[in-house]
Structure formats: structure tokens, C-alpha cells
Design a protein around this nucleic acid. Sequence first.
DNA 1: ATATTGACATTTA
DNA 2: ATAAATGCCAATA
Length: 107
Amino acid sequence: MSFSDKVLEKTKQIPKGKVTTYKLLAKACGNSRAGRAVGNTLNKNICSYLSNAKKNNKIPCHRVVYSDGRIGGFSKGIKRKVVLLHEEGIKVKNGRILDFENVLFKF
DNA sequence: ATATTGACATTTA
DNA sequence: ATAAATGCCAATA
């Protein structure tokens, strides 16, 4: 099992309505400092939550954000990411997650 | 083995 | 508060 495989597995565990950070995800995969590598993995793997919704593939990569409560990146544009988060009840204002600590999922 | 590339994170100015 | 400078890591070429 490669690092990126673990990342995808862990990402699937994030419950709806919650988010986690690249850092925590990295730690959950064995290396607390691999946040950057986590981002790369999510970017390369086409983690389509919308377009591939039919398939069993759903990897909620939009639930992964920066450790400081900012949104972070998204392959289809962060605007899309914000919309998805809103649909799950997570509020975002000025590029920041409101009540961040409260919606943060820790493994 | 070396270099490059990012959806990161901290520290410093 | 904002920006730049470092440090970091896995995958890829």
C-alpha cells in the first residue's frame, strides 16, 4: 500500500459535514510532515465527487482544507469546492471556514 | 541518483 | 495583517 493509497482511504473516512486538513491527513498516514505530498495525491487522482457520483468512487476531496482554516486548493477551482462545502452545512466566509474547530474531523 | 513539481505548514520580516 | 523565505514530502521524469 503506497502512501497515496492510504491518503485516499483516509479521505473516504471523512464524514459528511466535517472537514480535515492536509496535515492531519498526513499524520494519519504515518508522516505528520507530508501535508504537501497529500495535496499532490488528491490533485493527481481525479477525485470527482460530482462527475463520478454514479460510480462507487466517491472520494470527498473537498473536505480537505488548510490547517489554518482557509480553503486550500481544488482542481476544478476553489469556487466549486466552497459550493460543495456549503451543501454539507459548512459555512465559508472570505475564504475561511467558520467555526473551524467545531467542524474539524480528527482521525 | 538528481531534479522538478505542487490542493502544505511555519517562521520571520 | 500580509508577504517572503524556508522546510517538507511523495511521485514522476
